[in-house]
């Protein structure tokens, strides 16, 4: 399992939009049950795609600007960025295969 970097409204630009590799950002909240359910899958993916994909998390309770900017409503909400652009957006505690397919389409 890999440690997932937490990003904030203030670090989003540098950590996500200007990253050298594609980035999967997991928008989550502390009391969100499905966020908890999907967290181990996201951690597994961070290990499996190490070097090819950067995976980060953002607590929407502490960072309201970025989720508002990207139209986040239901959480968990995972957005895949490449070269600063949104390539995929996935809502809910989806199966791992669903995430892998979305990632493989972009990475």
């Amino acid at each position: 399992m890999a440690d997932i970097q937490q990003v904030s409204d203030s670090s989003f630009d540098g950590d996500v939009l200007k990253a050298d590799v594609p980035v999967l950002i997991d928008f989550w909240a502390p009391w969100c049950g499905p966020c908890r359910a999907i967290a181990p899958i996201v951690e597994e993916l961070a290990g499996e795609y190490d070097g090819k994909l950067k995976i980060v998390k953002m607590n929407v309770d502490d960072n309201p600007q970025t989720p508002a900017q990207y139209g986040v409503r239901g959480i968990p909400n995972l957005i895949l960025f490449k070269d600063g652009e949104v390539k995929q957006q996935i809502v809910g505690a989806v199966p791992k295969a669903h995430l892998v397919k979305a990632i493989d389409d972009v990475v």
Partner: peptide, 10 residues
């Protein structure tokens, strides 16, 4: 823990 988390959130 999924159910518990949501109950606490509510």
């Amino acid at each position: 823990e999924v159910t518990e988390s949501v109950i606490l959130g509510l």
